[in-house]
Design a protein around this nucleic acid. Structure first.
Lengths: 346, 346
DNA sequence: CTATATTGCGCAAACGATTACATCAATAAA
DNA sequence: TTTATTGATGTAATCGTTTGCGCAATATAG
């Protein structure tokens, strides 16, 4: 048995005294092949340890059965769950996924997209990086007629299928919840970049205030990169500058965590003195003391929907493509960091 | 401009009145092609928005320039960091990685490996699932002469390159540290399966006790699946059964976290009453109160080494292959959950 | 019992890039 | 002047599958 050379359908064919085309059809369960030969072929395939060469098949029929997934980082519960949601659907249809990380780096993102195109994936499902504000690489994908679906971090500048959660509602509910717990001077941690998710959450925050008769105060809007350290910095800054606040609604669980740490350090009680709500439902939010109120982004369903949209796109007539946007409802997860007995709503 | 059909080297060739072979050579910077034509070809390639078809190239020369990575889950800091470490090296050499998740599921793991073989990756770098105790799928890879490197969760049953941290040392240091902080009745959370990492850590735990004159007590060895909930269960069980312990060395940060939650719930002070040390340096370990002592698994260097071993393997003569095992030194991260003033070492 | 369908399989041309070998001109060496 | 050398490009085979078309042999219909 030759261990170096891999068996091909030709090997199976000559072994059985038939042609490669018959073998191919037999393996693909073609109706015009008799059950008898199918059985024979399958048996022979096992014997020679045949492993189909997808590369050759992909070259021949132009479909690689691969989906490229681009996420900023796989090391985030949300993204890896979305990937899982995509895989669930894709695997059922015998598609495999290639997961690529852009590390929030524009260069890397464009390179990755090009690499996926060269690898001839059948399409791409992605969430764009924070620093991406040029979308030529996405245009290239669309122009080539390659299915593209964006999720969560999307852009309106390129006409493709999209799936997001309703960040507005998520933020609105969260802030409303804070207000119901007696918080009125609610600061908001956000990101200055023009990604949809942050602007929508800001809008939800603002509207929740307005509709509860609380004036919007620009001083309570704190911009940063939303990592743990940024949350710490922002909180310190507010304390030092004497900004008057009694709650924080953060667009990121990480920044919320940073805030919690600083507040505890300074002896400020959460939620008695200051309430906190984050966004994303990262696992650690349930580990903290107190545990963090947050918004769940229904990640697995989002992955499912993204994959479904993708496969629709794959089947559809590209002529009459109308980009559609699916909006999922997020879920407010109420935990200790924001709940207190409302004794005196001032 | 035809948006559906993708440009090939033949298109470029006919556009310039030369042959495809010249175009191919020009694009690959072949020395026998004049600089003049190289320039022309590159220009023409830009114009038609040429994207090389790696599938065709891969079929022709048998190298896909793809590395398959199989991890139990990408959603763990350790694994995603290793992937990052692999990517760093791979990208330099113009290789792309396909990340696949086995979800600790044996079925899925074998399917994934087969899928990668069919996708004709040039090799595989993987960490095996907790429930994997049959290694035929790995044998298949080796038999086909396809480079395989295992990291972290490895097996000795198949002769391949491996890179691990010294789990023994990591555990030893951790337990030693607990002892130095006055803890003597140290429980150990471990996993019953025969993966290297758990048995090594158990060995380190046992030796550290022995060399400090503390008797090994089987009642203090608690087996579970090592998730957060398992850590909670195990801790509850110890409390209910009245097992006498004053510290926990957990082979998983998650289980350590579970223990911390239960202890706090029960009003048992950490680290005053009970010390805790985990393993893995998951990000959340620095967020908890108190923060968790843990062992860092030097994940990025591990990824680097794995990739380097992989590329050595790719170049090497498969005839004279001698599997090598690289062992990296882990780092003990000392935090609040285990440090107390040693007043009375009993 | 002839005419038409159906079944089962082979032939050969793709898919797009790479590359050993051949070719041909121009230049260098003899 | 002749031959060897080199430089630049063309020719054609190849990688392993898939698939339209063709051709028998058998089944069904009329």
């Amino acid at each position: 048995m030759n261990k170096r050379k891999k068996a091909t359908i030709h090997d199976i064919a000559s072994k059985l005294g038939i042609t490669a085309s018959t073998v191919s059809r037999a393996l693909n369960n073609h109706p015009r092949i008799s059950d008898a030969t199918k059985k024979l072929v399958q048996k022979a395939a096992k014997e020679v340890n045949y492993q189909p060469n997808n590369i050759a098949a992909a070259l021949r029929n132009g479909r690689s059965k691969l989906i490229g997934i681009v996420v900023p980082t796989a090391n985030r519960n949300f993204f890896s769950s979305v990937v899982r949601g995509i895989e669930e659907i894709a695997n059922q249809l015998n598609y495999k996924v290639i997961i690529c990380q852009s590390y929030e780096n524009f260069e890397k993102e464009t390179q990755t997209v090009d690499a996926l195109l060269s690898a001839r994936v059948d399409g791409i499902i992605m969430s764009i990086g924070k620093n991406t504000d040029d979308f030529e690489h996405l245009e290239r994908v669309v122009e080539k007629g390659i299915p593209l679906v964006l999720f969560d971090r999307i852009t309106e500048e390129v006409a493709v299928n999209q799936v997001v959660i309703d960040d507005y509602i998520g933020a609105y509910k969260s802030v409303e919840h804070l207000i119901q717990n007696g918080f009125t001077k609610i600061a908001h941690f956000t990101n200055p970049r023009k990604i949809n998710i942050y602007s929508e959450r800001l809008r939800g925050y603002a509207d929740a205030l307005k509709e509860n008769g609380i004036p919007f105060d620009q001083n309570l809007i704190i911009e940063s990169n939303m990592q743990l350290e940024d949350g710490q910095q922002s909180t310190l800054k507010m304390l030092e500058e004497g900004i008057d606040f009694d709650a924080i609604f953060s667009s990121s669980d990480y920044a919320a965590m940073g805030a919690l740490q600083i507040l505890k350090d300074k002896g400020i009680k959460v939620p008695e003195d200051v309430g906190i709500a984050g966004f994303g439902n990262e696992p650690f939010t349930s580990f903290t003391t107190p545990s963090l109120t947050t918004v769940d982004q229904v990640s697995i369903p989002m992955g499912n929907v993204a994959a479904e949209l993708f496969f629709e796109l794959l089947k559809a007539d590209p002529k009459k493509f109308v980009p559609q946007k699916t909006v999922l409802k997020p879920e407010l997860i109420i935990r200790g960091s924001s709940t207190r007995k409302v004794t005196q709503v001032k």
